[in-house]
């Protein structure tokens, strides 16, 4: 492979962000960090799919407002979600007058969007770009699992699709935090076909991406204030830490998982933790961005993982491929990342 880590010239800034979540996420341990929530999870819309679209609209509006931007300041939107043909993004962003790229990376979508936005901005192709993503528990349940009122038990390894949406505005190097490096993930399939254990399906992709990152950069995990994985949950997080340790990379001290941060795993009965495009996106937008601003975190790796299956592939018993995209976010404006 020619390219591994992509180091961005003049690391672009995450200039603004906005997010909105559902009731359960608001009641979780990160509740106070979110910009807004809806008690009914409907966001005033008649169907769950429309509710999810509405969240994207609200999240992008919040991001624009918080940065003092108008939509014509944005040169392109990179957006995606879990629902068939990315309709949550298409409908939710239909009224924004900006070029639109629809993405599918499952729960890794926000990292994919941030990566594309920061690369295009860093290279000077665009002045300012937005990355938006969402997931809604009800629309995801309907599409991937069972009707909402169906009475079933979820095994302890199952993850809970988060209701939430987040938007980020990326612009040229100007103020922290900066996206200094990105490492696009490779599709990795280690033969897991159990949709109730997506952590195990996605963990090998995270192992692959992080191992490539540390091998190539020569850095050690302890040089970072934290390594956030997106939605590996309880099962996948354990696998990730164990497998990297076997490779001589110990991330246990700095590793956090967005799926485990978003909820009180036991108290809120979410089994192995949260998942969905909205999970890592809202945790990044609300919690991690706040901790960066407060300088409690200064240099982090954000590794969002996605399980790339469909309802048809699951029914056909196919294995679940995973992907993990890495984004390095730093508070220092030094060019250390460039010389790396």
């Amino acid at each position: 492979m020619q390219k591994g880590i992509i180091r961005l010239n003049n690391p672009p800034s995450i200039a603004a962000t906005g997010n909105i979540v559902g009731k359960k996420e608001h009641e979780g341990p990160l509740g106070k960090y979110f910009d807004g929530f809806d008690e009914t999870d409907t966001f005033g819309m008649p169907t769950w799919e429309q509710s999810e679209s509405e969240m994207q609209r609200l999240a992008l509006n919040r991001a624009l407002d918080s940065g003092g931007y108008k939509i014509h300041d944005i040169d392109a939107i990179f957006a995606g979600d879990l629902i068939n043909q990315c309709t949550s993004s298409g409908y939710g962003l239909a009224n924004f007058d900006a070029p639109f790229f629809g993405l599918y990376g499952a729960c890794s979508t926000i990292a994919e969007g941030l990566m594309l936005a920061s690369m295009t901005v860093s290279s000077g192709l665009l002045n300012r770009a937005a990355a938006v993503t969402s997931s809604h528990n009800c629309s995801a349940e309907r599409q991937f699992r069972y009707p909402l009122e169906y009475g079933g038990q979820r095994p302890p390894t199952a993850q809970w699709t988060a209701t939430g949406s987040a938007a980020f505005i990326i612009e040229g190097h100007n103020k922290p935090p900066y996206i200094s490096e990105v490492l696009p993930g490779r599709v990795t399939d280690k033969g897991i076909n159990d949709a109730n254990n997506m952590g195990a399906a996605m963990a090998p992709a995270a192992v692959d991406t992080l191992k490539r990152y540390f091998d190539e950069s020569g850095k050690s995990p302890d040089e970072f204030s934290a390594i956030f994985t997106g939605d590996l949950g309880w099962e996948g997080s354990g696998i990730l830490v164990d497998f990297l340790r076997a490779e001589g990379i110990d991330i246990a001290r700095v590793h956090r998982d967005c799926g485990l941060l978003l909820y009180d795993r036991i108290g809120q009965d979410v089994h192995a933790g949260g998942s969905g495009c909205g999970c890592s996106a809202t945790v990044l937008s609300a919690y991690i961005m706040k901790k960066l601003a407060d300088l409690e975190l200064t240099d982090i790796l954000f590794v969002a993982t996605g399980a790339l299956m469909s309802p048809a592939s699951l029914q056909q018993g196919l294995t679940i491929p995973g992907v993990a995209h890495l984004v390095r976010i730093t508070m220092s404006g030094s060019t250390e990342a460039k010389n790396g």
Binding site: Q153, K190, G191, A200, A272
Partner: peptide
């Protein structure tokens, strides 16, 4: 990751948190 698919699947199933069978029953 130096582990073949079959071994990984077994490993993942083995470490997976199990339901509490007695309580469920």
């Amino acid at each position: 990751m130096e582990m073949d698919d079959k071994t990984y699947k077994k490993y993942a199933e083995k470490r997976a948190k199990k339901s509490n069978l007695a309580a469920d029953c």
